[in-house]
């Protein structure tokens, strides 16, 4: 199981959002760190096939990102995405399951299982417009997990979750990372520190760090802040 990102760049008119990133991801949890505008979301969108790189290739086990088979193994939770207010939580997941090509029976079984996993089983038949921000986020997490993805991309997954839910979610991610590739981005360094085995740090569209992080390296937060400070210094 291998996700290969090979010299991927994304350029908008006069701005390079992602600059020649090459990385190979294998089973495990990867934490993507970077300030706003570092290119995290752009990179994640390219990995999910919803944004075409200006150059470079992305493939999962030899399957190109543009192929339907690639999307079959993908689970994606965008940073900021909408819902259908008139749908119930159950409807939303069944709709997403259909989009992911799942059969009716499998979709129903998996939907019920995931609603329970994200503690939404009691409100499954209520309309999403009545959900709180945290509940919506949990529903988003559930939809990303519907097809048991081998490649799970989570953009700011812990945003809006309360501390208890965050702990539960961290454990869930850790479990998923044993068998799959999980790439998650967050601003909360402690989340990354506790879940991610490997750190990918981005700055100005480039990958400035990619390796395991252990205590011998010092505190991740200090390292991260040091780079942010450097960046702010440069901007000043």
């Amino acid at each position: 199981m291998e996700l290969i990102i090979d010299r991927v760049s994304k350029q908008y008119k006069n701005k390079i959002a992602v600059d020649r990133i090459s990385v190979k991801l294998q089973r495990g949890v990867y934490g993507l760190l970077g300030t706003n505008g570092a290119g995290k979301t752009t990179l994640m969108r390219m990995i999910c096939g919803i944004l075409k790189p200006t150059s470079g290739t992305i493939s999962f086990d030899g399957i190109d990102v543009s192929e339907e088979n690639y999307r079959s193994v993908l689970g994606y939770l965008p940073q900021d995405f909408g819902y259908y207010p008139e749908f119930t939580g159950m409807d939303f997941l069944l709709y997403m399951a259909a989009l992911k090509g799942m059969g009716k029976a499998q979709a129903k079984r998996k939907t019920e299982e995931l609603l329970e996993l994200v503690s939404l089983q009691d409100v499954a038949k209520k309309k999403i417009k009545t959900y709180s921000g945290g509940m919506k986020q949990r529903l988003g997490i559930a939809q990303a997990l519907l097809n048991q993805p081998k490649l799970l991309v989570l953009d700011e997954p812990t945003a809006g979750l309360d501390p208890k839910e965050r702990v539960r979610f961290r454990n869930l991610i850790a479990d998923l990372g044993k068998e799959n590739i999980v790439l998650l981005s967050t601003h909360i360094v402690s989340d990354i520190e506790q879940i991610a085995e490997r750190i990918l740090m981005m700055k100005d569209g480039q990958l400035i760090y990619q390796d395991k992080w252990d205590d011998s390296n010092g505190r991740l937060e200090d390292f991260y802040l040091h780079h942010i400070d450097e960046e702010e210094g440069e901007h000043e």
């Binding site: 259908y84 997403m96 090509g101």
Partner: peptide, 12 residues
């Protein structure tokens, strides 16, 4: 509504 992201990255 930004639902396009999860739709477009789905197999169908």
């Amino acid at each position: 509504r930004k639902t396009d992201q999860i739709i477009l990255c789905s197999p169908l």
